[in-house]
């Protein structure tokens, strides 16, 4: 396939993915907006008003970056895992497998679909947050780069989950029992300064700590961990996830007989 043909194939996959989540927007876009609004009301307004400052900001300002990032992570992941597993489940993945589309184009198409949903929901959640607090942007560059890197990383993770999944139960196990706990323990709602040294060090093993703190730095200019380390960790995990996804596609594991 020429590069022009590959681009057409890529855009076809991306368009299909966007159309899919817009068609079922009540399942894909609305829940995040509602959930995050509740977080803003409960943790930001009701409880947050009694907590006082954290990291030099009001508690509401402190949790907003984490909550936006939480929406990006869960939506990028969910989009790819449910869409790709769905195409495996109804065998429509064969439409791609019999075609001459290179594997990396298939992967990039699905990942980009997940990234667009992550960004879409991030914008919705950010707009919702404006009803509760003022928006601070410390560094647009850091915000944009970290949002893109994070959504790519978790879209890739969703892809790997989808390849291994055998049932719809399998696509909800990781988000429920791995992703959500890591997000909650990743410093969305608290500064790691509050933790005893031991637990603060344990927390540094959680990749979500780097994601949330890098994004918080981009918005507020404060972070519990080094920005450089955060970028390096996210980049490292992205390369690993991309390489493994390509390995799965190239070997046809669980896709071809």
């Amino acid at each position: 396939m020429s590069l022009a043909e590959q681009y057409i194939a890529f855009m076809t996959i991306v368009r299909k993915e966007i159309k899919r989540y817009l068609r079922i927007w009540t399942q894909t876009l609305l829940p995040s907006a509602i959930t995050m609004s509740l977080y803003f009301v409960i943790f930001g307004t009701l409880i947050g008003s009694r907590i006082g400052e954290m990291g030099g900001f009001s508690y509401m300002q402190f949790v907003v970056p984490g909550l936006i990032m939480m929406a990006i992570v869960t939506n990028s992941y969910s989009n790819v895992v449910s869409s790709f597993f769905g195409s495996k489940f109804n065998n429509s993945v064969e439409e791609l497998l019999v075609s001459p589309v290179p594997n990396y184009v298939i992967l990039m198409g699905y990942v980009t679909g997940g990234v667009t949903r992550g960004l879409f929901v991030a914008i919705v959640v950010t707009l919702v947050s404006l009803f509760f607090t003022e928006l601070h942007i410390h560094s647009y560059l850091v915000v944009v780069v970290i949002v893109l890197m994070t959504s790519v990383l978790f879209a890739l993770a969703g892809f790997i989950n989808a390849v291994y999944a055998n049932s719809f139960d399998d696509i909800s196990i990781v988000p429920t029992f791995v992703l959500t706990p890591l997000i909650y323990l990743g410093g969305v709602f608290y500064s790691m300064d509050l933790l005893p040294e031991f637990w603060a060090n344990v927390s540094r093993l959680n990749p979500l700590v780097y994601v949330v703190n890098a994004f918080r730095y981009g918005m507020l200019g404060v972070s519990d961990v080094s920005l450089t380390v955060s970028f390096a960790m996210i980049a490292f995990f992205t390369v690993v996830a991309f390489s493994y996804s390509m390995h799965l596609l190239n070997t046809g594991k669980r896709l071809r007989q």
């Binding site: 396939m1 020429s2 022009a4 043909e5 590959q6 057409i8 194939a9 855009m11 076809t12 996959i13 368009r15 299909k16 159309k19 068609r23 769905g86 195409s87 109804n90 065998n91 429509s92 064969e94 439409e95 791609l96 019999v98 075609s99 001459p100 589309v101």
Partner: peptide, 28 residues
């Protein structure tokens, strides 16, 4: 190829299924 079992997303419209397949082969 026309397989034995239905292998398309049954929530998609027929026109989308056919147009998308053309896209996978690089047709504008």
């Amino acid at each position: 190829v026309v397989p034995q079992e239905f292998n398309f997303n049954q929530f998609e419209k027929g026109i989308d299924i056919v147009v998308n397949q053309a896209g996978y082969y690089g047709l504008p």
